[in-house]
Design a binder for these strands. Structure first.
Lengths: 139, 139
DNA sequence: TCAATAGTCAACCATTTGGTTGAATATATT
DNA sequence: AATATATTCAACCAAATGGTTGACTATTGA
């Protein structure tokens, strides 16, 4: 049961993708690639960083499957590979209902909170007013 | 101009959010919080990890603004705070057109690639056939 | 053939990360 | 008052991260 829970989140894809996106230089590189294919040195020049440094970042992006590279002679052309970004967005979509404020969603959220309340007051019946200062305060 | 480019991506919010999401334990904690408010020890138990370890993860999530905490006596209740996830999704939305295959999007992509090609051949006029084996190769 | 260009690789470095343990703090319970 | 519970804190550790430099490889151009 614990194992079940863990396995459900053993998604190394997402680990790598989110980690790749957590660096501003790498996000800038990705953004640059939306304009089209770019060579490694083209990608490196805007940054106050050695070529080797930029090369490392590109390799991280490649490792996360966000960039593809094709070598032509001595120059390496990098291309945005967006599929894995779609996976990341798909993961985020699960949480959409927690920031959308549409009424039917709100209703569902309230129902879930009630269930949560019920369950937590089973565990500690002495504090029934537990979540009085949560999103439940619908003013 | 270089500075412009850098500033555009100085979004420490996103740094923190994506970094928080890059760890499977933390994603599992977030998922758990979709079921409702949870205490720190409730969140910690499913993981093969000390309480202090889990506490650290929760603090990372809090630092990224993904979790809010309200203390009641000795117990700390954690709550999902999805707004920053929305920001992350917003960032990803910029890249949607690169994985959607709707025809009008494709058309736009091709137009942009042309512009990119034009620009890069300004920079290095000797390689006009640069992106012959890119997404441009439409079967 | 020789020099310049494009890029990687390996070694190194400081900092961050993800984890631990043991002690400390604060609240509940008996 | 004494004990148990919930949690943090501080110190520590190994590994990963983001960066550097210098040497190496391979291709291109003169």
């Amino acid at each position: 049961m614990i194992l079940n829970h863990m396995v459900e989140f053993q998604t190394p894809h997402l680990d790598a993708v989110f980690h790749a996106l957590s660096d501003p230089t790498r996000r800038a590189i990705l953004h640059r690639l939306t304009e089209g294919e770019r060579t490694v040195s083209e990608l490196a020049t805007p940054f106050n960083m050695s070529l080797a440094g930029a090369s490392k970042h590109i390799k991280v992006l490649e490792g996360a499957g966000l960039v593809r590279r094709h070598v032509q002679g001595r120059t390496h052309y990098c291309q945005l590979e967006a599929a894995r970004l779609a996976e990341a967005q798909e993961w985020l979509r699960t949480y959409e209902r927690f920031w959308t404020t549409r009424l039917d969603d709100l209703e569902e959220i309230l129902r879930e909170e009630d269930r949560a309340l019920a369950r937590s007051s089973e565990q500690s019946p002495s504090s029934p007013a537990k979540s009085d200062n949560t999103s439940r305060s619908k003013k």
